[in-house]
Amino acid sequence: MLEIKNLHVKLEEEDKQILKGVDLTVEAGKVHAIMGPNGSGKSTLSYVLSGRDGYEVTEGTAELEGANLLDMEPEERAAAGVFLAFQYPVEIPGVGNMTFLRTAVNAQRKARGEEELSASDFLKLVREKAKALKIDAEMLKRPVNVGFSGGEKKRNEILQMAMLEPKMCILDETDSGLDVDAMKLVADGVNALRDEGRGFLVITHYQRLLDHIKPDVVHIMADGRIIKTGGPELALEVEHNGYGDILAEVQ
């Protein structure tokens, strides 16, 4: 599904190397988690994959089902199946959540040469998906993320993911700012989307989220590289001992 090879990335504005050779393959149907200390490059990786400005790829490749992601505009990546659930979902005053969702869904369908969803089909679909995430009609009417609580914002991200049905879901610290109940709700939303055609890359600081979204593979990232890869037990090890031991072991 997603294949990253020797990816090197630096910030455009300052000459600072953030990713220093990331190798990572996420297979369809699998959930990979990336853990790592602050500043290790986890969020940068998610931004680079989704096409945010401000980063320069100096070496390496990133492909989704064989297509070169790095050559595509953000909207082309989205249409190809990349979805990033933001750590800090953006507030957009003046744009209704519903209008936003419908525009996004139909833009992607159009880009893929599919027919656009009719207003009534769209409405039916969004109501059904919103209900599962306990997002009420009022929240759908409000401007995108404006005045939403932290939990509401994250649920709104998952709603977008459910509506867009991407192939490759990247979740950037989706657990941050969530209480236990909200985390459960978000995790249920993610788990409902798990299927054999879809890959997940879950970025998190804590093991907590991985209790709810069970990963198949766990990677530890530090200083712009993946330094260790293992099974779910690796996350538990981090939870108990911190990153210190693993970092020491690698050095």
């Binding site: 945010r52 505009e73 953000p74 909207e75 989205a78 979805f83 936003f100 525009t103 996004a104 833009a107």
Partner: peptide
């Protein structure tokens, strides 16, 4: 970027 990352083309996103 948020709008584009959801598949909305740049011109359309700017207009929105």
């Amino acid at each position: 970027f948020y709008l584009r990352s959801r598949g909305v083309p740049e011109k359309k996103a700017t207009d929105m």
